[in-house]
Design a binder for these strands. Structure first.
Length: 427
DNA sequence: AAGATAAGCAACCGCGATTGC
DNA sequence: CGCAATCGCGGTTGCTTATCT
């Protein structure tokens, strides 16, 4: 099966790119754009397949690439995003400006994995290795410990390192489908509900319900991590639910009484917070006053005039990249969404709800009340997300907006400076 | 100094999803 | 609606460089 390689078929060049080839490709794309990739090599005069050109451009030649070694902050971010997203490298890369999925994937496989293991954390499950091993011993479906440690265990599926080919989709996660008994009823309840919400567009579960759930957990997660003086016993911080479903409420109540909540990686929590903070809630609402302080979080690009009014789904990379397909606006009451075009309320289908839910639920059995930072044992660096910094400080999804803008400017400047050398006689 | 091994990285491959005819 | 072309993603390979013995 599978298509024959276009390179074989057309006797095209393979392997490393020469500077001349790079030059041709850069020259062509800067002049005409890539358009249809399959036509690029022909038009650019390259003996390569379109796929190869695309890859070369995306991973190496694009002017907005940062390159260079990853900072500790970036590594931390990758770890946290991986805990939420698994091996969705492109989605992780979308949160790291100037980094490619390939680069991140390489870093993960060559460096981060190792570091996590050294710290006693299984990089696949983000659980302590000892627990993973125990599960391997006790779980009848785990064939051997090695398999568990590689995260391929039927029960510990989060990321196998080759999920696309060998693992069921997250929606078919056997932990969810086949082992509901392993989950607390509340977990099961929410998982089933959210899976249903994915499978049926007519469900009464909406993105805002997830926001509520996330927020709720946030309160129980680690109050000293949040830095908002949030009272874990107060329900004021998270969205006033206006719950569409009484089941949801009872579910939450169940969570409260059980106080056995799955932990969420802080990145997930920060998503939630940032979603909330980037909405247009009034300043007097529990969330609204935050929004005035979080308008410039770094996932959002400012307008040319530096105005914060553009901070909306349309300008947030995280939303552009569908990390949260429902966007910020879905997390607020309908009347608060008036200033957002209706089209922006639509939920793209490309991201599945359950994909965002599997991690908390899986982690829930093991990392309760322990923050990702605690677990990973890294110092609380500047990448601590909005949830963790004092309100008065600049939100720091990435270190800060100014720095990022500066960085982007430097990158572009650097690449523009490089162009003459790269292009040689090109003018 | 030389060979072995590890690490880092660029690129390829195959597959699923999407698009256009 | 079916098919083929194309795109984009994630896993893997293989080359180069660095480090170790």
């Amino acid at each position: 099966m599978g298509r024959h390689s276009c390179c074989y078929k057309q006797k095209l060049r393979k392997g490393l790119w020469s500077p001349e080839e790079d030059e041709k490709l850069i020259k062509h794309i800067t002049k005409y754009g890539h358009g249809c990739w399959s036509s690029v090599p022909k038009l650019a005069g390259l003996q390569r397949c379109g796929k190869s050109c695309r890859l070369r451009w995306i991973n190496y030649l694009r002017p907005d690439l940062k390159r260079g070694t990853f900072s500790q902050e970036e590594e931390n971010l990758i770890i946290e995003l991986h805990a939420v997203l698994g091996n969705r490298w492109s989605q992780i890369a979308a949160q790291l400006p100037g980094r490619t999925d390939n680069e991140i994937k390489n870093l993960w496989n060559s460096s981060i994995k190792k570091k996590l293991r050294q710290r006693g954390i299984d990089p696949n499950t983000h659980k302590p290795i000892s627990e993973v091993e125990n599960e391997g011993k006790t779980s009848p479906s785990s064939k051997n410990n090695e398999k568990v440690s590689e995260g391929i265990s039927d029960l510990t599926f989060v990321d196998s390192g080759n999920s696309k080919k060998t693992n069921p989709s997250l929606d078919q996660n056997p932990l969810i489908q086949n082992n509901p008994s392993n989950l607390a009823p509340t977990h099961e309840f929410f998982m089933n509900r959210f899976i249903a919400s994915h499978e049926s567009s007519t469900t009464d579960i909406k993105p805002s319900d997830l926001c509520e759930y996330v927020s709720f957990q946030q309160l129980n997660y680690s109050s000293n991590n949040i830095g908002l003086s949030m009272n874990p016993n107060s329900s004021n911080f998270f969205f006033n639910s206006n719950s569409k479903s009484s089941e949801i409420e009872s579910g939450f109540n169940s969570c409260v009484t059980n106080t056995v909540l799955p932990s969420l990686p802080s990145s997930f929590l920060s998503f939630s917070t940032r979603m909330k903070s980037s909405t247009s809630l009034p300043p007097d609402s529990p969330i609204g006053h935050l929004s005035t302080k979080f308008q410039n979080w770094d996932g959002c690009s400012l307008g040319n005039n530096g105005s914060t009014s553009n901070v909306s789904r349309g300008n947030c990379s995280i939303f552009e990249n569908n990390a949260f397909p429902w966007g910020a606006t879905d997390c607020v009451k309908p009347e608060k969404q008036a200033n957002v075009p209706s089209s922006e309320h639509e939920i793209p289908e490309d991201i599945k709800w359950s994909e965002y839910l599997h991690t908390p639920f899986i982690l829930g059995n093991t990392i309760q009340n322990q923050s990702a930072q605690d677990l990973y044992g890294e110092t609380k660096s500047q990448t601590q997300f909005a949830t963790e910094g004092p309100l008065s400080t600049t939100p720091n999804w990435h270190p800060n907006q100014q720095q990022q803008n500066l960085q982007a400017a430097e990158i572009y400047s650097k690449h523009f400076q490089r162009l003459p050398t790269t292009f040689g006689q090109f003018a």
